[in-house]
Design a binder for these strands. Structure first.
Length: 712
DNA sequence: TTCAACCACTT
DNA sequence: ACCCTTGGTTGAA
């Protein structure tokens, strides 16, 4: 039989072996199978190991004694256990580790697609050539790699399904079906006919991807037919949960995974960053994880997968993580942990002739350039490059990622921003950026497989040193450094009014530090805000300004907060845009009356009831169980109403509500109807005045200081 | 007026 | 299934 070529789109264990789905160049979707025995390892106390040997032998596992490399402790004698059927591994390993908890285990929880990539050189979403006898794979060869900038696009068939209304608010009446230019709706009542129609739709279009709204939590759990492409598999459901990540409690609704095709619920997945489907596909490609998994997991899971793949390829054991409970930190640890990135106190005020300079992917670049990896001893912080040393696991993992992102960004810079390809490149670059960013966080993460706090600290220490070097360089060239924050600096020099005036500085810094650097922009003016509690104290991460081309940049102010109602955000943005009309600082004052009028006009609109309710809605996350609040926040009071209406809430879930007069002070969106007369107009006006005040209050004060010669 | 609790920001 | 700290606002004491 002639070899098959196409894209590998799915891969999972069958009853007896591995199932592969190939989107063949002929257009067919082929289900193939392949023998795929899996080996994992155990090490530790000799007598326990011998008992484990007997335990496994009785279950028909193939056993051997081997020597393999642990990243941290080096060569180690291990028990190698090989199971012929990949599907049997999770249960077997659960039993084994429960019976012998003291042993160290390796390679037992590596996702199957990663093993596949390590063994065959090919992976999900990649092109490959397969020699098959019937449907059985005899040989497989990768035809491309995840590092290609222009992979041949996969001709995916995408079916979109969305209800006419959020099912949490009220029961939807119709389901919208979109496939290419086909676009129609199906009535949900009666449900039996609905199911017949939907089943026929899926059968007719045979999509590779079902892109849904509320498919995880509402649509798919209700279906009585099998929406898989592989009829031998049932859908895989995972329960809803609340977990702590990224400094906050996150709620994840139940999830439904398919086999042979993918299901992604836009309302329950792709929650990280804003890189969309394009970004998820990019992440899935470079990490080797499946699309459905990558869409629902954090980039942290992605970078961990990449590290595992590096380990598998270089013959390093992948430790199974033992969950460590949160332990109280000693004083010593706290002091050490205190040293993060460089944070400099900005010079409070409004400044002209300022450029913002960013180190591009600073932390990952440091890890690669200085070969920072958990298995390495502390690097020479003086900056001596380590030429002869073997590249560590982390730099090895990051290097191609970093290079690909830079290449994408270079290509982006060549394109017209309106070019439709620009959007896709941007999404892909952003998706890679997130993988790079969290890699640093994972170095210091207690439960990371390949983390070590010393490496984490080495990175921040080097970053501080590099920033200080950059500062010195700037000062030698006659610039004043107004502010430094983590990986960016703000420099000023009278007479420097355009990008080119800062080029020599950029070149000098890049030359000195060896880290790529980019000009974020030159500001017409930029304001560094003082603390509202004490106006003598600057706040490092609250600022706003206007670039030469009129673009506005703002950080840390109300506009950037997710819990600022749109009404308030719009007022603040309008004020900022109004003041951005000023070409120079001296002109800003002339625009302030106009800005005041904007606020007063919006207040009149609000009082007259002409502001749409949507603009008054506040979106806030529940940080804990509703009953765990000592002083229920507005979101908690809204959640209480939600519960009283017979709905359920979980920690991490987002509540939407409007401030109202009287008790309990809020109206939870979706619970009955809001009596518009009870909207707490006064409160919204105070919020919007305060947000506007953040902008002009600072400016009036600061301009006064400048004109009074305070700065001179 | 003071202070604890709560929420979200920075990258 | 990421590390850290911080400011601003609210409402109880």
């Amino acid at each position: 039989m002639a070899p098959l070529t196409g894209w590998l789109i799915d891969l999972y264990p069958n009853e007896t072996d591995l199932a592969l789905w190939l989107l063949a160049d002929s257009g067919e979707r082929l289900l193939l199978r392949m023998d795929f025995p899996i080996t994992f390892y155990a090490a530790g106390d000799f007598s326990a190991l011998r008992q484990a040997w007997r335990f496994l032998r009785d279950k028909g596992v193939i056993l051997a004694r081997e020597t393999r490399r642990d990243l941290f402790t080096g060569e180690r004698t291990v028990l190698a256990a090989t199971v012929p059927r990949p599907a049997s591994l999770p249960e077997l390993f659960a039993e084994l580790s429960a019976a012998f908890p003291a042993l160290d285990y390796y390679d037992a929880d590596v996702p199957l697609p990663l093993r596949f990539a390590a063994r065959t050189g090919g992976g999900l979403l990649g092109r490959c050539r397969i020699d098959a006898t019937g449907n059985r794979v005899a040989a497989i060869e990768a035809l491309d790699s995840p590092w290609e900038l222009d992979p041949q696009p996969i001709p995916l068939r995408v079916l979109e399904l969305s209800p006419d209304v959020d099912p949490a608010l009220r029961p939807p009446g119709r389901l919208r079906v979109k496939y290419g230019r086909v676009d129609y709706t199906i009535s949900l009542e009666p449900f039996q006919s609905f199911e017949i129609a939907l089943h026929a739709t899926i059968h007719q279009f045979d999509p590779d991807l079902i892109l849904s709204d509320y498919g995880d939590t509402w649509l798919l759990p209700r279906l009585t037919f099998n929406p898989n492409r592989d009829p031998a598999k049932d859908v895989l459901s995972r329960k809803a949960e609340s977990y702590f990540a990224y400094g906050q409690v996150v709620y994840r609704g139940s999830q439904v995974y398919l086999f042979g095709r993918w299901h992604i619920d836009r309302k329950n997945a792709m929650l990280f960053g804003e890189y969309g489907l394009e970004g998820v596909l990019e992440q899935a490609r470079v990490t080797g994880l499946g699309v459905q998994e990558m869409a629902r997991k954090s980039p942290g899971a992605g970078i961990t997968a990449m590290q595992m793949l590096t380990a598998l390829r270089t013959g390093v054991l992948v430790p199974v993580v033992k969950q460590q409970a949160e332990s109280a930190k000693t004083l010593d640890e706290l002091i050490r942990a205190d040293k993060g990135g460089m944070i400099y106190q900005p010079l409070i005020g409004v400044h002209e002739h300022v450029a913002q300079i960013d180190f591009a992917s600073m932390y990952p670049s440091i890890m690669v350039n200085f070969n920072i990896s958990p298995e390495k001893k502390g690097p020479a912080l003086s900056g001596a490059t380590i030429g002869s040393e073997v590249e560590g696991l982390i730099p090895q993992t990051l290097r191609p990622l970093l290079e690909k992102r830079l290449a994408l960004k270079r290509r982006l810079a060549e394109l017209d921003p309106r070019d439709c390809r620009a959007k896709s490149l941007k999404a892909r670059a952003a998706a890679l950026k997130w993988l790079l960013v969290v890699c640093f966080g994972y170095l210091g993460y207690k439960n990371a497989r390949f983390g070590k706090i010393e490496s984490h600290e080495a990175v921040t220490s080097i970053s501080r040193e590099l920033l200080l070097q950059a500062k010195e360089t700037a000062e030698e060239l006659g610039f004043t450094v107004l502010h430094m924050y983590i990986d960016c600096l703000f420099v000023q020099k009278p007479g420097c009014e355009q990008a080119a005036d800062f080029s020599p500085l950029l070149a000098a810094i890049e030359q000195q530090t060896g880290i790529p650097i980019a000009l974020e922009g030159v500001y017409r003016w930029v304001a560094f805000l003082p603390s509202k509690r004490d106006k003598r104290i600057p706040v490092p991460n609250r600022y706003f300004g206007v670039f030469l081309d009129g673009e506005i940049k703002y950080r840390g102010i109300e506009l950037r907060r997710h819990d600022t109602p749109p009404f308030v955000a719009k007022v603040q943005l309008a004020v900022l845009q109004c003041l951005a009309g000023a070409k120079t600082l001296a002109q800003v004052q002339d625009y302030i009356p106009k800005a005041r009028e904007i606020v007063e006009h919006s207040n009149r609109e609000l009082r007259a009831g002409r502001v749409p309710l949507e603009d008054l809605v506040i979106t806030q996350r529940l940080s804990r169980d509703v009953n765990a609040y000592k002083f229920p926040s507005p979101a908690a009071r809204a959640a209480r109403q939600w519960i009283d209406a017979g709905k359920s809430v979980a920690p991490g879930q987002v509540m939407r509500f409007v401030f109202t007069r009287g008790k309990p002070g809020v109206w939870a969106a979706g619970v009955g109807e809001l009596d518009e007369r009870t909207v707490d107009v006064g409160r919204y006006i105070r919020l919007s005045e305060s947000a506007a005040g953040t902008i002009w209050g600072a400016l009036i004060e600061l301009i006064k200081m400048v004109t009074d010669g305070f700065h001179l």
